[in-house]
């Protein structure tokens, strides 16, 4: 009897941990703000991200890791808009919504959507974003382009709506191991 319980337990834990995890520490996330006055772009190339073949998706990055063309603008981004001293990180945790359409063992390009909580500036918001997952030779890469309204995240500043667009385009480009 004890034996059976033990086997059941082992099998159960195995099933739960049998998920394969893909991860990267050098993922790229870019944001782009476009207004008639000025276009602003910044890149973070040290995004920490993990995806599992049971559909879990997670991203985490340091706000201070965003690099701008203009170092002064970068300082203002951290100091005046993102309060990165107070909110050093931004992140996302969510799930791939239509996991059945993706075969992690087979090479291919899969279009899907990801749903979950995006946390920026200490504010969590549920979002749904389109994503493209590419499996090639056992490696996974993921891309996504979506927009966020920055005022939804409690980000305030003089130039929002003028030099800084209210809606910012985010581009995710990660290659996982």
């Amino acid at each position: 009897m004890k034996k059976i319980i033990f086997i059941a337990f082992v099998l159960f834990t195995l099933t739960a941990s049998a998920q394969k995890m893909y991860q990267t520490r050098t993922g790229k996330i870019k944001f782009y703000s476009s207004t008639p006055v000025e276009n602003i772009e910044a890149i973070n190339t040290q995004v920490n991200s993990r995806i599992t073949d049971n559909g879990q998706v997670a991203f985490i990055l340091l706000i201070r890791g965003f690099v701008f063309k203009n170092a002064l603008m970068q300082e203002h981004f951290n100091e005046n808009y993102m309060d990165s001293e107070k909110y050093p990180k931004a992140g996302f945790t969510g799930m791939i919504t239509d996991l059945k359409t993706i075969d992690f063992t087979k090479d291919g390009i899969y279009k899907t959507t990801v749903k979950g909580d995006l946390e920026i500036h200490g504010v969590k918001k549920n979002i749904t974003a389109p994503a493209t997952i590419e499996i090639s030779g056992g490696k996974l890469s993921a891309k996504s382009v979506f927009k966020v309204t920055i005022t939804d995240f409690g980000i305030k500043g003089n130039y929002i709506g003028e030099k800084i667009a209210k809606e910012i385009e985010l581009t995710v480009d990660c290659k996982y191991e």
Partner: peptide
């Protein structure tokens, strides 16, 4: 495992 969104980090 699907019902919750475990923090992978």
């Amino acid at each position: 495992s699907n019902a919750q969104q475990p923090d992978l980090f």
